[in-house]
Simulated assay, not measured.
Amino acid sequence: MVNAWRFDIRALDGGLILMVMALVILGLVMVLSSSVAVSEVRFGHQWHYFQRQVFALGLGGLLAALVIMVPSESWLRHRGKWFLLGLVLLALVLIFGREIGGAKRWLPLVVMNFQPAEWMKIATILFLAGYLQRHQDAVKQDASAVMRLFLPFGIMAGLLLLQPDYGTTVLIAGVLVGMLFIAGAPFRYFVITVLPIGALLAALVINSPYRMARVMNFMDPWQDPYGVGYQLSQALMAIGSGGLTGSGLGASVQKLLYLPDAHTDFMFAVFAEETGWLGVVLLLSLYGLLLWRMFAIAQAAWMPEAPFKALVVYGIAIMFAGQILINVGVNLGVFPTKGLTLPFVSYGGSSLMMALLAIGLVLRIEYETRLSRSMAIAAPVQQEANPQGVL
């Protein structure tokens, strides 16, 4: 019998690791480039945000290494505890959290500020994957099995919106719908779930002046380019000025305190300005390869009687895809500003750490899938070589 906690690091998916490493290295370069001016003004030197990102990378790499050594069965068994931990952290941030830019989303820890919403994304995927495995037949036949999800996810959404964190709420709702669809829930259930969620989110926008201003801003930022449309208009100028080949690494003009949040939410605009559309195509192609590989891993891990592993990888892939789509869309003026980072590239310690943790989960599941397949192939061969079971 194979010990599930034993692990051969040489058996990891090298292609997936290389893609993530390429994105992380690119992210470090862009964090350094995009944050020099704001770091100099706020902290008196140019390295502040870069150093913090490197520190988060070290912690995230350690987390990923630990996660890789944990059997997926352990995540399945304790999924409820991880989800409850996420809810507790979301409640604590409302009480003890640090407020930045009118939002209370960060818990001040000894070495860094941690954003519990980033962990909540992972906890949601684990919890939902376990629920869908346990109730997979009911989800396909009984609407009440889907409706029961409203209580835990309603509490989570409420805590997120109190911060407020509208972007993460929308992203998790998208992951929820995507995982239900993959698990085989009938289309009519999506009407039951999506319409009320959509109506609630629309009502929150209409009844919130600052959210409504964001909607009107993205629809026509040039109406007030020096007021509410300033951030988006500066981002569009950065993207447009990049041209085909860009101004060169480190040569962005908009990062020189013209474009707010140039190293976080609007990193894509600075990247497009410095590398041009050729760089943008390269970045999006790298993301496309990463997502394709994760969907391939999920498909290989799919077991009709036990889909937990596959659903976890599908959920992580959907999470990354949604975050990339929203961030790039915000920078291009397609969506209102949501405050979501570009995975592995934008500045954000919590985001980078949890993204690497998620990759650790994917690598572990890919390893287990390949191991189980090789054992299944080897078993008949061993039986044929020793049909009588003679030692």
Rank of each mutant, 00 (worst) to 15 (best):
A4I: 07
M19R: 09
M21K: 00
M21A: 15
M69Q: 11
V41M: 11
E40P: 00
S33K: 07
F7N: 06
S34V: 05
L59V: 13
S33H: 08
L76M: 06
K81C: 01
L18V: 15
D13Y: 14
A4D: 10
H45P: 02
L59R: 02
V88L: 13
Q51T: 13
R42T: 14
V38D: 09
G14H: 11
R42N: 15
L12A: 04
L90T: 02
G27S: 08
A22L: 08
R52N: 08
S39A: 15
H78D: 01
H78Q: 03
I68T: 07
E40T: 10
K81M: 10
R79H: 07
L94S: 04
G15M: 03
L89P: 08
A65E: 01
L62T: 10
D8N: 15
V36E: 04
V70S: 06
L57F: 12
M21W: 02
L62D: 03
L12V: 14
I95A: 12
D13I: 13
V41D: 08
V41F: 12
L32F: 14
V93I: 09
I25V: 15
R10I: 00
H78S: 05
K81Y: 12
F50G: 02
V70Q: 11
G14Y: 10
L18S: 15
Y49A: 07
V36N: 02
R77W: 03
V36H: 05
A64K: 06
R98M: 05
V20T: 15
N3D: 13
I25E: 14
G61H: 02
V54R: 01
W82P: 00
L23T: 07
I68F: 13
L28E: 14
V88D: 03
Q46L: 09
L76K: 14
V67R: 03
L63V: 10
L63S: 09
Q51P: 01
L26K: 03
L94Q: 04
L84T: 07
W75Y: 15
F96D: 08
I68R: 06
N3F: 06
S74Y: 14
Y49I: 06
S74Q: 12
E73F: 12
A11H: 10
G86I: 05
I68L: 11
S35E: 07
F43Q: 10
I17D: 02
A56C: 06
L85M: 12
L59C: 08
Y49Q: 05
F7M: 11
